[in-house]
C-alpha cells in the first residue's frame, strides 16, 4: 500500500515539475521573439552609429564595423550641445512631471470619490481632451499665449508650466483618467476609517490615498517624463529655440548636420543621426531602469503558474 502511495506522489511531483519547466520554456520563447522584434531595428541603429564612411560603402560590412569610429558621437555631442541641453531638458521635464503628478492625481481623486453636479459631463470633458487631436488646439493656444494679459509668453517655458498647472499639459487628460481608475480600484475602507477618526478630506488624500497609489504615481511619472522629453508638438508651438529642448535638437538633427555642418551625403548624415538617437534614448532608458526597481517588487502570486 505504502509503496503504491509513494509512486503516486512521485508521479504528481514529476507532473508538477514538468509543468513548471514547460512554462519556463514558453516564457523564454515568448521573450526571445519579442526581444528580436524590438531590438532588431535598434541594433542596426547602434551598430551604424559606429560606422566610418568606409564601412558604410563596404558591402562586406554587416553590423560589425571594420574600421569603427567614435567620430559620430563626438561630433553629435558638439552639435547637440549634449551635456548642457540634457541637464536643462531633464530639469524642465522633472518639474513638469511633479506638477503633473500633483494636479492630475488630485483631479483623478476628485472624480473617483466625490459626487458633484455635472460630474458626468465634466468627466466627458476629460475624455474629450484625451481624444481631441492636438493640432486642433494649436491656433487658440498660440493666440492665448502671444498675448497673455498683455505679455508675449512665447519662446519661454512659462506657457507649458501654466498649462500643466491647470491640468491641461501634455497628455494630462490621460493621467487624470489613469489616476481616476486607480483610485476607484482602491478599497473604500481606508478612507472611511480615516473619516471616522475625524480626518479631513485633504488629510485623508495625502496621508491615506497617495501612499496607497504609489504604483500608479510611478507609472504616470515615467510616462510624463518620457513623453515630455520626446515632445515636439508643444516645443515647436511655443518655439523653444536655441538650447532649450532636446526634442527640438534631436528632430532637427538631420537638417543641422547636412546644412550647418555641410555633410553632403545623406547616407553619411544618417549615421550621425543614429548616434544622436542613441544619445537621446540612453538617459531616458537609464531613468526607467532605476525607477522600475521601485515599483516592481515582483508578486509571484498572480496566479498563472502553480
Amino acid at each position: 500500500m505504502r509503496k503504491h502511495a509513494n509512486a503516486e506522489g512521485r508521479k504528481l511531483r514529476l507532473v508538477k515539475a514538468s509543468k513548471k519547466w514547460l512554462f519556463v520554456l514558453f516564457r523564454l520563447a515568448v521573450f526571445a521573439g519579442i526581444t528580436y522584434t524590438i531590438l532588431g531595428p535598434l541594433v542596426t541603429i547602434v551598430s551604424r552609429s559606429f560606422f566610418s564612411t568606409d564601412d558604410l560603402y563596404n558591402p562586406l560590412v554587416y553590423l560589425f564595423p571594420k574600421s569603427g569610429t567614435l567620430e559620430r558621437y563626438t561630433h553629435v555631442m558638439g552639435t547637440l550641445n549634449y551635456g548642457k541641453v540634457l541637464v536643462k531638458t531633464l530639469v524642465y521635464d522633472l518639474l513638469l512631471m511633479l506638477i503633473q503628478l500633483f494636479i492630475c492625481s488630485m483631479t483623478g481623486y476628485g472624480f473617483a470619490r466625490f459626487s458633484f453636479p455635472f460630474k458626468k459631463i465634466l468627466f466627458g470633458m476629460v475624455i474629450v481632451t484625451i481624444v481631441l487631436p492636438s493640432y486642433a488646439v494649436m491656433l487658440p493656444l498660440y493666440q492665448t499665449f502671444i498675448d497673455f494679459g498683455g505679455m508675449n509668453l512665447l519662446s519661454t517655458h512659462i506657457p507649458m508650466y501654466i498649462m500643466t498647472f491647470f491640468g491641461c499639459g501634455l497628455r494630462s487628460g490621460l493621467y487624470i483618467y489613469i489616476f481616476n481608475q486607480f483610485f476607484r480600484g482602491l478599497p473604500k475602507e481606508f478612507e472611511e476609517a480615516a473619516y471616522i477618526d475625524g480626518a479631513g478630506a485633504w488629510y485623508t488624500y495625502f496621508r491615506i490615498m497617495v501612499p496607497n497609489a504609489v504604483p500608479s504615481i510611478l507609472t504616470v511619472a515615467v510616462f510624463s517624463l518620457v513623453w515630455q522629453y520626446n515632445d515636439v508638438f508643444f516645443a515647436r508651438l511655443f518655439v523653444y529655440g536655441g538650447d532649450n529642448a532636446m526634442s527640438i535638437k534631436l528632430s532637427s538633427l538631420q537638417a543641422t548636420i547636412s546644412y550647418v555642418d555641410k555633410v553632403m551625403d545623406p547616407a553619411e548624415v544618417s549615421l550621425y543621426v543614429d548616434a544622436g538617437v542613441v544619445l537621446g534614448i540612453l538617459p531616458i532608458l537609464l531613468i526607467y531602469v532605476v525607477l522600475q526597481r521601485y515599483f516592481m517588487e515582483g508578486v509571484e502570486r498572480s496566479g498563472i503558474v502553480g
Partner: peptide
C-alpha cells in the same frame, strides 16, 4: 462632499475653461 470634490478638481476646471472651451 460635493464642494470638497470640486476643490479637488478646481485647477483642472479652470484650465479646461481657459484652454479647451475656447478651442
Amino acid at each position: 462632499r460635493a464642494i470638497t470634490g470640486l476643490t479637488f478638481i478646481l485647477p483642472w476646471l479652470i484650465g479646461i475653461c481657459l484652454f479647451y472651451v475656447r478651442t
